[in-house]
Write a protein that binds this DNA or RNA. Structure first.
Length: 1045
RNA sequence: GCUCGGAUGGUGGAAUUGGUAGACACGUUGGACUUAAAAUCCAAUGGCCAUUGUGGCCGUGCGGGUUCAAGUCCCGCUCCGAGUACCA
């Protein structure tokens, strides 16, 4: 008993140690950050997770561990560290679960968060949990709604290049109309004067302002699925039907909220130069924004064929006047305008119906209808098929005045540019292919270029020919000249086009932030801040209503009483609508209006959470000025690259907006960002079509004809091949049933037997006919041999039949894939924590490879880091068993060298986020100190601090056992001192013609010539040279010697 | 197609500015301890050839080049991964 107790104190009992310190940190609020400090601030942030029902898998903590190491390191370095965590807790899975089970998403979400928290706590993160945020918490989304209102009340002034108050725009309108206003606004905004403005009705004014607001209502084309009553994202549609249920999907216009992110396109692009983010991520944002420079050109549509005919008769009639229709195109190659031989409109282009000639109407209508049926994604995926039809109409070339046929084709997308192109087949491959296909002329306007096979698109080597005033000019000059000419004619100007579209901000979902919006006379009104949050109403069903309204349409208590500023029953609404302001009804019915039924998208809540962490409980403001002045911005942000064009773009946009409004002090919120690589899982496949089942059967025959029933018992062993289709489960019952069926056919003759019974004992096993996934956790991580005991732990395989291992080995084939629950290749951190402890898991995740690289998960190597921790523990044992009893060994020079080498490397590694190499460094350090039998506190104390960011639990325990009563978290990071590393000699590699031949130890302070002399005098040098005279001797002091000859 | 990554032993991966390729760990093999197993410890471990010892040759996806010296720099490919996709 006594012995056991002593042993447990001596052994590395990670379970006890980890639980102890996790409790200690929570109790002492070790990692609580203060908004006031004399220390410099450091804000370390991990992207907050969506709390899914599956819990964390080993891929999740990778980034958290990295952030945690850095945060703990910075704390050791004397920083006041903010390291918060929260949950992005609105989202689809909880809603879908609610649809299936009727359980409120809030309940599911709460349960999932609880599970996440347990798992996170287990890993020993230094989070300041007092600052936790949840996007689905009304106290949080109050401020999401508030930002929305700020956006609504703002417009983008292109003159000052920032967002400004909408009231200022109104006063400009009142003074001078909108003729001088340069704003990011809808394309169809008409010009008006101050007089016009004052003459507009209030509703018209509101309609006009909506065209300027940074969040606005617009008709947006969406993928509408009538059967599901919902809008689908592009990837929810497969082959034109819904992925779920296979219902038809149509493109439909819906009034939805949009965010005018395009106003910030240029600033989002420019800002990338100011932040330290990974280049691939910057590239993908750059591509997503998709800036292209060129010109917009207006082509006049020729009104009727008579005009055209008379022109071809050389009776020149001016056709540039009174054209009914104009087509505006965007081109990046205005220099090739003389090569334009046709135009193509997107089938959805509004002019299609107007300009199509009666003769062509039928084919055009058919084509338009056919394309409408295809989703945009389908159209884009199908690049090879060329299709289009001629409208019968012609446009006039701005310079040559020649008629140009107008076609429609689905290779032109309505959503990019103006939905119309001037087709220059000689300079664009798509135009070229289209022209070839429909036999349209392909004029060549390039000097010395053969275009008989393909288009020529190389701007750099372009010399324009056959183009009137552009002849002989290279690309750049030609562009300038054309734009000048077009501007003079009023038929075009230089233009910068962006691929980036305004972001649709409405979702027909339940589990999201409600808009703080009600409608008076169809115009949106914002609810005042003091009445926020506008909380999600309760609903009976989480599906869209029968009339196709979003789920909030099911709410019975969802109308806004503007007078009393509160949510009231829909009954009140109906009353008012039916009766108007009738005197029959009491006053309270007045001023009740419908509330918005859409909710905000997933990215709304995540677009400003990093700021809210600075002051998460503030009920008066999104955060106090004081808090943001102190914390400023995120110093280190770690998360996955899959958010490159979603969250990471939208949040930059919101931040820039908050900056413009003076609410945030920085216009980029994260100076440094790192993408952790994906941890891929190893999927295991079993494939045993030919494996047999060995059964023992007992056959009881009962013969009808005999007077006395005779029981005959025969025990048979037989091999039966059991085949399984993919759908069938490999359970004992399934196998047995199949076996009995076969046995019956084989052994029971129907004539003599009245009845029979079969029993079977399984002595063999059965497996699958086809390649089938089995859980990664059920195989040996090295041999991939299946372990049936482990397999049966998985619910799906709980009845799987095993075979004695001596009979047959089941070895799986492997495939590396993204980790996901459905692929059965996830690895649960809990199991690893249980077996090896959190410190082992933390070290191992870092040891796996470079943080940013994607890497396969394999538990095989975890024993390595675990035994490292045991060795580390052992190193400190003299301080635990009392054997040292106060005697303190002075550190040897060797000890100091090892320590300082480690300090230097680990510090460099952390600064460079090269966590995998510091784990190696620790291993080397511990191996060396063990070999040196180091017993010095002066070495072991700093070592504990070095290890503490990586393996905080063991570090705390060792620190305590060294006699400290305070947490190691605030201990000062050891200072590297060069003096301990100074060497007096160097083992020079001596190479001949670049090949290493031998090594020679020489003093480091030896000069070049001395080294050469020493090397040349060496006997091995003579042996190598064999009397030859070296041509050259290269000596790099402190590095290498190379002898050429 | 375009953009961006990447390719090093049986495996994950090391290798500051070009300067000893394969650190560290896993695995494997052999050994110690043990009745045995686990745990722990020790040794070997890129390939080929030779050998009493010493040694030699080849080796960082492929083909060239620059250099005293190339995993690292340059040119041309191949393959793999990620993102994006008719962007006018």
């Amino acid at each position: 008993m006594l012995f056991e107790k002593a042993a447990s104190k001596m052994n590395y009992d990670f379970r006890e140690i980890e639980a102890k310190w996790q409790k200690y940190w929570a109790k002492n609020e070790t990692f609580k950050a203060s908004n006031h400090s004399d220390k410099p601030k450091f804000y370390a942030l991990s992207m907050f997770p969506y709390p899914s029902g599956a819990g964390l898998h080993v891929g999740h903590p990778l980034g958290y561990i990295a952030t945690d190491i850095y945060a703990r390191y910075k704390r050791h370095k004397g920083f006041n560290v903010l390291h918060p965590m929260g949950y992005d807790s609105f989202g689809l899975p909880a809603e879908q679960y609610a649809i299936q089970t009727g359980q409120h998403p809030a309940i599911t979400t709460e349960a999932n968060i609880k599970r996440y928290r347990e798992q996170l706590d287990q890993l020993g993160f230094s989070f300041d949990w007092s600052r936790e945020v949840r996007t689905s918490d009304p106290n949080y989304y109050k401020w999401t709604q508030w930002v929305f209102i700020q956006l609504f009340n703002s417009w983008y002034n292109q003159k000052s290049d920032k967002a400004e108050d909408i009231e200022e725009l109104v006063s400009i309108f009142e003074k001078e109309g909108n003729t001088n206003v340069q704003a990011a606004c809808d394309d169809d905004t008409l010009l008006f004067s101050a007089e016009d403005w004052s003459g507009f009705t209030e509703k018209t004014k509101q309609e006009i302002l909506l065209k300027y607001r940074l969040t606005y209502l617009a008709d947006t084309e969406v993928n509408w699925c009538p059967a599901l009553g919902t809008v689908l994202a592009n990837d929810e549609i497969v082959n034109g039907v819904s992925e779920r249920g296979g219902h038809p999907v149509i493109r439909k216009k819906m009034t939805q909220w949009s965010m005018r992110i395009t106003a910030y396109a240029q600033r989002l692009l420019d800002g990338l130069d100011t932040i330290d983010w990974p280049q691939p991520l910057k590239d993908s944002q750059t591509n997503w924004i998709g800036r292209s420079e060129g010109a917009s050109v207006t082509f006049n549509v020729i009104d009727n064929l008579d005009t055209e005919r008379s022109r071809s008769d050389q009776n020149v009639i001016s056709t540039s006047l009174n054209h009914q229709h104009q087509i505006e195109v965007f081109t990046t190659r205005p220099d090739t305008i003389f090569g334009a031989s046709f135009m193509t409109l997107a089938p959805e282009h509004e002019l299609v119906a107007k300009i199509t000639t009666p003769e062509q109407k039928e084919v055009v209508d058919a084509y338009v209808e056919a394309t409408a049926k295809r989703s945009e994604r389908d159209r884009m995926a199908d690049v090879k098929t060329i299709s289009g039809v001629f409208t019968g109409a012609y446009a006039e070339h701005p310079f040559t005045k020649e008629p140009i046929p107008i076609w429609i084709g689905d290779y032109v997308l309505a959503s990019y540019g103006t939905g119309a192109v001037m087709a220059v087949p000689c300079g664009d491959q798509r135009d070229y292919d289209f022209a070839k296909h429909y036999d349209i002329p392909i004029p060549n306007i390039f000097e010395g270029i053969d275009i008989s096979e393909e288009a020529f698109a190389d701007k750099a080597n372009t010399i324009i020919a056959d183009s009137d005033f552009l002849n002989g000019l290279p690309y750049k000059e030609a562009v300038t000249k054309v734009i000048e000419a077009l501007e003079k004619m009023g038929q075009g100007q230089g233009k910068i086009n962006y691929r980036l579209r305004d972001a649709v901000f409405s979702r027909q979902r339940y589990w999201g932030e409600p808009f703080p919006v009600y409608y008076v006379d169809g115009m949106p009104q914002m609810i005042d801040l003091q009445h926020l949050p506008l909380e999600l109403p309760e609903v009976e069903k989480y599906l869209p209503t029968e009339t196709g309204e979003p789920p909030l349409g099911n709410a019975t208590h969802w109308a806004w009483d503007a007078k009393n500023s509160k949510v009231v029953s829909n009954e009140m609404l109906k009353q008012v609508q039916q009766d108007g302001h009738s005197e029959l009804n009491s006053e309270s019915y007045e001023g009740v209006y419908p509330l918005e039924l859409n909710t905000m998208p997933g990215w709304a809540g995540s677009s400003q959470y990093f700021n809210r962490y600075m002051d998460p409980h503030n009920d008066e403001a999104i955060y106090s000025q004081e808090a943001i002045d102190y914390w400023q911005d995120v110093d280190l942000y770690i998360g996955g690259s899959e958010h490159a064009t979603g969250h990471l773009l939208y949040s930059r946009f919101w931040q820039k907006f908050l900056f413009d409004k003076g609410i945030a002090p920085k216009d980029e919120y994260a100076q440094k960002l790192i993408n952790q690589g994906m941890i891929t899982g190893t999927s295991i496949f079993m494939n045993y079509a030919d494996f047999n089942v060995l059964f023992k059967i007992k056959l009881v025959e009962v013969h009808e004809v005999e007077p006395i029933e005779r029981e005959s018992e025969s025990e048979l062993q037989l091999l039966v091949q059991v085949f399984y289709s993919k759908q069938e489960e490999c359970t004992f019952d399934n196998v047995k049933a199949k076996f009995l069926e076969q046995a019956k056919q084989k052994f029971v003759s129907s004539e003599s037997i009245k009845s029979y019974s079969l029993e079977c004992t399984v002595t063999g096993g059965a497996f699958f006919e086809e390649k089938r996934r089995v859980p990664y956790s059920s195989v040996d991580p090295i041999s991939f041999e299946l372990d049936f005991r482990k397999l049966r732990k998985n619910e799906f395989f709980k009845n799987a039949i095993s075979v004695a291992p001596t009979v047959h080995r089941f070895v799986g084939t492997t495939e590396v894939e993204k980790m996901s629950k459905s692929k059965l290749n996830t690895e649960n951190p809990d199991d690893i924590c249980e077996e090896y402890g959190a410190d082992s898991l933390r070290l191992y995740e870092m040891f796996l490879g470079p943080l940013e690289q994607s890497k396969p998960w394999n538990t095989a190597g975890i024993t390595g880091v675990h035994s490292f921790l045991k060795k580390l523990w052992k190193l400190y044992s003299p301080f635990m068993d009392g054997s040292l009893s106060g005697v303190e060994a002075e550190p040897s020079a060797e000890n100091l060298k090892t320590l300082h080498k480690t300090i230097k490397k680990v510090e460099e590694d952390i600064e460079n986020f090269s966590f995998n190499t510091s784990v190696s460094t620790f291993m080397i350090c511990v191996n060396e100190l063990t070999a040196q039998k180091c017993k010095s506190k002066l070495i072991l104390e700093p070592l504990a601090i070095l290890v503490s960011p990586y393996a905080p639990h063991i570090a705390e325990e060792l620190w305590e056992r060294l006699g400290h009563s305070e947490s190691i978290a605030e201990a000062t990071f050891p200072k590297f001192e060069e003096k301990y590393l100074v060497e007096s000699t160097k083992e020079y590699p001596i190479s001949f013609n670049g090949k290493l031949r031998f090594k020679l130890e020489l003093p480091l302070d030896m000069g070049k010539d001395e080294i050469e002399a020493a090397v040349m005098a060496h006997e091995k040098t003579h042996a190598q040279l064999q009397g030859r005279e070296p041509k050259k001797v290269i000596v790099v002091p402190g590095k290498i010697v190379n002898i050429v000859g």
